[in-house]
Simulated scan of single mutants.
Amino acid sequence: MNGSVNIEIKAGIGTITFFHPQSNSLPGEILNLLADTITAAGQNQDIKVIVLKSEGERAFCAGASFDELISIEDFETGKTFFSGFAKVINASRKCPKLIIGRVQGKAVGGGVGLASAVDYCMATKFASVKLSELAIGIGPFVVGPAVERKIGVSAMSQLAIDATEWQTAEWAKQKGLYTELFDSAETMDEAIDKLAEKLAASNPEAMLLLKKIFWEGTEHWDELLDERAGMSGKLVLSDFTRQAINKFKNK
Rank of each mutant, 00 (worst) to 15 (best):
K173R: 15
D119W: 00
L199R: 00
A86N: 08
E190T: 10
K212L: 13
A35C: 05
A244C: 04
L131A: 09
R58S: 14
P145G: 07
I138S: 12
E180W: 00
K87N: 15
S157E: 15
F18V: 05
S184Y: 05
L98Q: 08
T164H: 07
P204W: 10
G217A: 10
T17S: 11
F18K: 04
S23G: 01
N44C: 05
S4G: 04
S25Q: 15
K198T: 06
Q158S: 12
T39I: 08
Q174K: 12
T241K: 01
G42R: 13
I99P: 00
E55R: 11
K194G: 00
S25K: 10
I7N: 08
A196E: 04
K212M: 13
E190Y: 02
K94T: 06
A201Q: 14
F141K: 12
A244E: 12
V129A: 11
G3E: 07
F182L: 04
I72F: 11
I9V: 15
T218H: 08
L208E: 13
W166E: 14
P204Q: 06
G217E: 12
Q43S: 14
D226H: 11
Q174T: 09
V153C: 09
W171V: 04
P27W: 14
G139L: 10
G137D: 04
S184G: 03
A115K: 01
S4C: 01
T80E: 13
E205C: 01
A62R: 10
L26Y: 06
N6K: 14
G217C: 10
L199A: 01
A127I: 02
